[in-house]
Amino acid sequence: MTVRNATPSRSRRLLTTLLLTALLAGCSSGHDWNGKDISGLMPELAFELTDSSGETYRAEEGEGSIRVMFFGFTNCPDICPTTMARLKGAINQMPDSLQDEVTMLFVSVDPKRDTPDKLGEYVGFFGDDIKGLTGDEKTLRKLAKRYRTTFGYNEPDENGDYDVSHSSAVYVFDDEGRARLLLRSQLSRDEISEDLTTLVRETTG
């Protein structure tokens, strides 16, 4: 390609386009993911929350493993238990040697009702290796905003019970905490398991 006859501004635009193309090509993993590839589109995993033991848990404590993060609440009647079971089932379908490389993070956005004890009981139903986390509302809203999602509380009924609206999206971070995949609810266990297996092998291989 010859650009010597182009104007300086046109040459700069052409050079910028070529550089951006090269950068984007360099960032691509080359995998045909079932989930949405969000590499470079969202910030790295960062938070300071309270776990089901009542202790402070920071994102960096899970570095070295693939983190699968889902926002929900323990009184959720359908989306949360269905998603939790599908995620755990997908991990269980991975090769035995790779399963320990994946950590599930369940972040409750209902701190008023989801005490550490209740969180521990809830996540323990799905598996002993799932981290149940929560925090005050301000902290949770900041975390949700970081990953371009939100949640809300409906009006309580005569018994004081209320529902919580939230996204069903699941975020996957690699062993260094970089955002890699967004898993939508229509993905099957097999598809999720395939993506997680590929990601583990990529980061450990």
Rank of each mutant, 00 (worst) to 15 (best):
M1H: 09
T2N: 13
V3W: 15
R10S: 08
R10C: 01
S11C: 08
L15Q: 12
T16Y: 01
T21W: 14
L23C: 02
G26M: 13
S28E: 12
H31R: 06
G35K: 13
K36P: 01
D37N: 15
S39D: 00
G40M: 06
M42Y: 02
P43R: 15
A46E: 11
F47L: 07
E55D: 13
T56L: 02
T56Q: 04
R58Y: 11
R58T: 15
G62E: 06
E63W: 14
G64E: 09
G64D: 07
R67E: 14
V68P: 14
F71P: 07
F71Q: 09
F73E: 03
C76E: 06
I79M: 08
C80G: 11
C80Y: 03
T82H: 05
T82E: 05
T83M: 12
R86W: 00
A90I: 00
P95S: 08
D96Q: 11
D100R: 10
E101V: 00
L105Q: 11
F106D: 10
V107C: 09
V107Q: 04
D110P: 03
D114A: 09
T115W: 00
T115G: 07
P116G: 08
K118C: 03
E121S: 15
G124T: 07
G124V: 03
F126P: 14
G127K: 14
D128H: 03
K131T: 12
L133K: 05
D136W: 00
T139G: 04
L143Y: 02
A144K: 06
R148W: 00
R148K: 12
T150A: 15
N154T: 02
P156K: 09
D161L: 02
D161Y: 06
Y162Q: 10
D163P: 01
D163H: 06
V164W: 13
S165K: 07
S167C: 07
S168P: 11
Y171V: 01
Y171H: 10
V172G: 15
V172P: 15
F173C: 09
D175I: 06
D175P: 01
E176K: 15
G177L: 07
S185Y: 01
Q186D: 15
E191F: 01
E191R: 13
T198Y: 10
V200D: 14
R201S: 13
T203R: 12
